[in-house]
Nucleic acid binder design. Sequence first.
RNA 1: GGCCCGUUCGUCUAAGGGUUAGGACACCACCCUUUCACGGUGGUGAUACGAGUUCGAAUCUCGUACGGGCUACCA
Length: 507
Amino acid sequence: MSNKVRVRFAPSPTGGLHLGGVRTVLYNYLFAKHHGGDFILRIEDTDQNRYVEGAEQYILDCLKWAGLEPDESPVHGGAFGPYRQSERKAMYRQYAEQLVNDGYAYYAFDTPEDLEKMRETHKSADNPSPQYDHHVRMKMRNSLNLTADETKALLDAGTRHVIRIKMPQGETIGFTDMIRGYIEFETSLVDDKVLLKADGMPTYHLAVVVDDYSMKITHAFRGEEWLPSAPVHLLLWKYLGWHDQMPQWAHLPLILGPNGKLSKRDGAKYGFPVFAMNWKDPKTGELTEGFREKGFLPEAFINLLALLGWNDGTEKEIFTKAELIEKFSLERVHAAGAKFDYEKAKWFNHEWVKQSVVGSLESVVRGILEEKGLSIPDEAFLRKVIGLVKERCTLLPDFAEQASFFFKSPVEYDLAAVKPKWSEAKDAFFKVLIAQYETVNWSAADLEASFKELATAKAIKPGELLLPLRIMLVGGKFGPGVFDIMEVIGKEESFKRVADALVAFGG
RNA sequence: GGCCCGUUCGUCUAAGGGUUAGGACACCACCCUUUCACGGUGGUGAUACGAGUUCGAAUCUCGUACGGGCUACCA
């Protein structure tokens, strides 16, 4: 009971959910489900300045699309709520004050100007970014140098203040990362991080510890960018007296763009999506494209993300969600960052489109075709078309290109492919062919046999005739076999297309 | 600058002391297909560098270089 696996994804609702975020969700989810545990979504909305309307709902929508729904969240509920940090505000101050009372933290009354001045005066070539640490804290305005009475007076007067952790000097503190092994830090080198901000909200550092503790999180996974602040969190677990309940940590490798940590900018610059779904910034109105809208199947999306930094030790690359849950293990997560390769991402989707059964593709493809203004006669027809073209579709919108000629006659022909070699004899061939087809059983195999028979009789190489026939039916040099196409579109439509094209070719 | 993490084909990775260093994407060639794809076969292509340990190192240790992250009252 008490050792049930509980993991959490804790995004801040500041905008779109990018690849790295979704992969963190995925690894959390897979780990939880592999161990029969729970996956929790916690919203870290402690920074009121960066809060973006709609971002929380967007994150929920992304998880739903990807098939990674949480067991507990602000909307799914759960026994450890509330799941928004803004709604947990009261408890953080209590713990922060406890730390002050125990001598592990202190009140700091420095204004932003004071901090700015401190950084300016201590800045040098050797130390380009001075920290608020043991070197300077005794020169600042905080409860460490003020008398108890002075501090109390300031607090009573409602002076704006923060609570900072008092990093000890000369201690070495470490932990064992599930991916990287033992890592240690020198406490003197870490600054006195703010724990509670002047507005009463906790910073990430305090909130993550308090919440992971109170939500009984057993394993905590986050991006590698958090590694440098691990010593602060380690100390908080210890100072708060919870050290034996600290989750096991794993710092996930970063997903890199062409230069450094993958960013929204990279997507725009290199032409690939970075967010799971389209994200429209409510303030600027700027739209950032998502994998869903680009035409990725959710199954392919999680598959490609899972393989970006993990493999099961075999050469298998295509995994269903169930297989991922079964095979996933943190020990096989690569420690190094992985550069995102859009070409490979598309390959994953193509594999998924090819192997998907027709029925599972039907509704999305229907949507895509209808959006193009094509009317779909009936379900059976649509299914046949999907079966015929799916292997040449990499992204979902490719269905529009690959299948539209099934639903409407070509508007224009690739005449350059036919005209130069067009002849009276060929024209005559097709007229006879149509007459002959009147009595042929309308199946691809029979149509082909009949076609070849007539070609032989007329002493024209079938190859000379197949391309023109394709252009008549399709308009261009692409698509499935011509006889398969005819079988699907039917006799009447086939005859009409041949007759129309004959006019165009002749003129 | 300091601290931390990392380093196998262009990219994602396998190989956790002994292999002709394997696979996938991409690229090239050929085959299949008288379309476009799919598919098949083959090819180009990597252990960052230097020491050390060892009979033997991509694998262990150290150093160097390079890459990345962090260095906010942001997460």
